[in-house]
Each structure stands twice: as structure tokens, then as C-alpha cells.
Write a protein that binds this DNA or RNA. Sequence first.
DNA 1: GTCTATAGTGTGATAGAC
DNA 2: GTCTATCACACTATAGAC
Lengths: 185, 185
Amino acid sequence: MSTPDRLIESTRELLWERGYVGTSPRAIQQRAGAGQGSMYHHFSGKPDLALAAITRTAEEMRAGVEEILGGPGTAVERVSAYLRREREVLRGCPIGRLTQDPDVMADPALRRPVEETFAWLRDRLAEVLAEGRDLGELDAGLDPGATAATIVAVLQGGYVLARAAGTPEPFHQAVEGVLALLSHP
Amino acid sequence: MSTPDRLIESTRELLWERGYVGTSPRAIQQRAGAGQGSMYHHFSGKPDLALAAITRTAEEMRAGVEEILGGPGTAVERVSAYLRREREVLRGCPIGRLTQDPDVMADPALRRPVEETFAWLRDRLAEVLAEGRDLGELDAGLDPGATAATIVAVLQGGYVLARAAGTPEPFHQAVEGVLALLSHP
DNA sequence: GTCTATAGTGTGATAGAC
DNA sequence: GTCTATCACACTATAGAC
């Protein structure tokens, strides 16, 4: 792995664990096994590195979601598979957590990938839900856009509950709760 | 307002806006109009002040919730009122955001009020939902615990979506989405 | 490309005068 | 109780040698 790649990977991990404010260039360098000069040679500074890290994380997340939502199965099956997919629940969502970082949200360049990822995710889920509704798999009165927002919110909020509780259990409860509401009627 | 009170209020605001890592004693003092000596006279340091601030916020939140959930109306009416209550959506949840702060979660004293607040909230909502189910207002097969987790997660995740989008709209969509699922069958 | 040296600022806290 | 002075350290970045 090249030095720039190692720096980006270090930044990704630290942004996930400690957020943007809590991540220092020094910590990034140490984790990557790179010196200061090296880091500032490849990147203009902390924001530049963070942009590379966030962009890469957003791309990976999108690909992972599309693998499930664009795969085989009925609409409800695909949504269920997405909700029940294995996750490192207590680590939280690497994109969602950036949302709480004022310095990220204040920088348009850093904010864009966060905004776009969630917009895409909601749209993609809404498409699948609309498909399920049109095929009679879901209630005819179901609002795909609102329900998609609910589902994404359950995941993001599930992470919050799990971290508060110190266990993944409330995350899984929240997921099963919304699936029961979705499938039951 | 006394100096200790002003310091606590400053800390509450800054924890909400910038989180624990992003909040410096200096910023707290400046916002409170207090000097360093004054701050360290009344509090032993940043963690001590944060504990006072978090405790106060948790107490207020609990009282606000109980006012609605313990008020008049059917179970669904009270849950709807709680979900639709006016909120400063883009500011996020002052307790939920602490969940993303590794230094808060690493300190058992700071973590406890966060953990207890969410545990209480889920239990309280589950009670109301069980009541609604037992009175035939909600589906007989509804799981109160899981559904309560779902509802709290929708709120917490709604904040995340709203901040990502830069507008409160997805928060309201998520809320209406879950209410539709809850009331429809 | 990578290194070390250095700078300027902020952090979190203590000391001791008033 | 509140003030100013001071501390040791970390942060983010630049300079210039190698």
C-alpha cells in the first residue's frame, strides 16, 4: 500500500472513531507510519486528507448498498436484507457520524459527499419501496419517500441507541420493529 | 443568574453545538463571562462541568417527554404528539449527539446520564404502546419494546438526515413515515 | 519523497495575589 | 470568589536539508 493510501486509510479510521475535530494530523501520521513531511507532501492539510477519506468511505457505502438493493428478491426481501445486513453496530455509521461534526458541516467540500450519500440512499430505497407498492407487495397507500426516510432514520438512530446502551441490542430491536410495521398490514 | 449557573448554561450550549471534544474551557468561560480562576473555583475541570451540564439537560428532556406521554389522550395520540412536537431539528438532540463523542462514552460518569435517559425513554414509550395495544388501539401482535426502539431511533436518525440535508424536511418525513406505518393497519 | 526543526496558537490546568 | 500569570503540552502548518 502506498503512503498516500495508508494516510487515507488512517484518516478514515480516525474520522470514524473520533470524528474530524478529534482527529489530529499527528495521530494520522503515526497510524499510517508516515512522517509529517510526507503527509504535507501528498496532501495540503487536514481538510484535504479528510475529503479523500470521506469520499472513499461514501463510495464504498454506496457500492455496498447497491449490491443488496439492486440484487435479486422482492422489494420487502431486499429492504429486509439491507436492514439486517451484518454491521459493526457499536462503531456507528462512518458517514452519519460526520453529521455531528460542526467543522465538517461548515466546509462545503466536506459536507457535499455526506449530503449526496444520504440523498442517494433515500432515493434508492424509495424506488425499491415504490416498486413493492406497485406490485401489491406493500400497502397501496404507502408513501415511498417518507417510508424511505423512516428506514434510513431507524438505522442512523439505531446506532445512537446502541452506543448509548453500550450494546447492539436496541439497534436490532429498532430494525425488527420497523420491519414488523412494514410487513404486517 | 449565578456564576456557576452561567458556566453550566454555557457548557450546555457548547456541548450541543460542538460536542465535548470541540468545547474548550476557554470558550465556556468567555460565553459565561467568567474568568479562569472563577471556573476552576466552582468546578474541578472540564469533566466536572460537563457532568453538571449533561445532568441538567437530561433532567429537562425527561420532564418534557413526561409532560406529553403522561398527559391526556389515547396512546397513539400521545405518541404522535411526542413525535410531532416542535423541535430545533437542525440543532440535533443535545443528548443523542453525546453518543458520538468518544471522550464522553469513555467516562463512566459522563456516560451514565446518556445511557439512563435513553433507557428510560424507551421504557416509557413501550409502556404507552403496550397500553394502546391492550386497549385494541394498536395491532395485537405489536411488540412494545421493539416499536419503542424504532420510534426513538426514527427521531435520532431524523436529526442525522436533517443535518445531512441541511433542512428539517427529512426529519418530518421520517416521523410521518413511521406514524403512517403505526396507525395504518 | 521523506526527514527534522521550528513556529504560532490553543488547551487544560495550577499558583498565588487580591 | 475572582483575578492575572504561568505551565507543559498538543495542534496545524511551514521551512529547508537530505
